[in-house]
Amino acid sequence: MPYILQTTGLSKKIGSKTLVADVSLHIPKGEIYGFLGPNGAGKTTVMKMIMNLWKPTSGTIEVFGEILTPKSYKFLQRIGSIVEFPTFYDHMTGRENLQLHCEYMGYYNVNSVENALEMLDLTHAADQTVKSYSLGMKERLGIARAIMCKPELLILDEPTNGLDPAGMKQIRDLLKTLCTDYGITIMISSHILSEVESIADTVGIIHHGKMMKEIRMQDIEEMNFNYMELSVTNDRQAAYVLSEKLGLHNFKILDCGKIRIYDHSVSVQQVTRTLALNDVEVASIGKKSETLEDYFLKLTGEVKNHA
């Protein structure tokens, strides 16, 4: 599979502090890659190194088949990006900021500015100064600027910051269209699992500066993580009964008295009956399927397995 962007053993230290360590990621051409992790996990650090804003302490970055060096900048003409927060000339209008971007990118398609404004629902505000824009409008203007010159690769760091649910859906739909209809490869970082799950073809999970896993969403779906979820009044007593009375070991205890059982050898009726016989009250019980959030929590150890 051809990769439009990949890193190998990428690390970054500032003084004695390691920001990211040994990050290897692989982004297939023509797909949406979700770079997933909590705030502070190292997502922005990796993106800064990819964009040559920060130099790696060690490791390599390969973009469009070429290894990046400290003097590599020509490749940036083929990339649209938002890393951290989009910045503008606040005294200029939204339209003027986009026109200026076209000038220094050497991109002179006469319709590009108006098309970008329309795609991001900013036509009505195009002639207002950017200092009057809300956070969400600035975020949309940043995306407009990133896509305006028809990049081959789009790198977006938390692009739905400041957007309401309707705005978030608009951006999701736009990114899908850009990938499907225009063939643009997209790397999008987020700490919101549902956002990544809804659009990504492949997910890279980073945690505490280390790459935990790269996995295709299709593979997660095919794993078919079915489980039984129950709510009980006494989770410690319930855990004892599940382990000692039913011989179950593959389950985990969540907050608020919830327990998930991954062992398929028992039925809902068996669990309910055994807990009742041992004075554990069951408030609710049923079968469910595991989501990307569940997979993430299990992978990063945020929710511990109980044996």
Rank of each mutant, 00 (worst) to 15 (best):
S194G: 12
M119N: 07
H207R: 04
D90F: 08
K74E: 14
Y240N: 14
F251C: 04
T272C: 13
P28C: 08
K258H: 13
G247K: 00
I50D: 00
S112T: 07
V46A: 01
Q218P: 01
D164H: 08
S72E: 02
N226L: 11
S231E: 13
G204H: 05
R78E: 15
G65L: 00
V130Q: 03
T45G: 11
N52F: 07
D121F: 03
D219L: 00
V282Y: 01
P2I: 05
S24Q: 07
E221C: 06
T129Y: 09
N278W: 08
I79F: 10
M137I: 03
M217K: 11
D263Y: 04
H249F: 14
G15D: 03
I147Q: 08
R140K: 15
V232I: 03
N111C: 01
S24D: 09
V266A: 14
T180D: 12
S134I: 04
G167C: 09
Q77G: 09
M51S: 01
A283Y: 15
N115G: 07
P28F: 09
T7W: 14
E290R: 05
G37L: 03
K210H: 09
I184N: 04
E139K: 10
C149F: 11
H249L: 06
L36T: 05
G106Y: 06
Y262I: 01
Y262S: 09
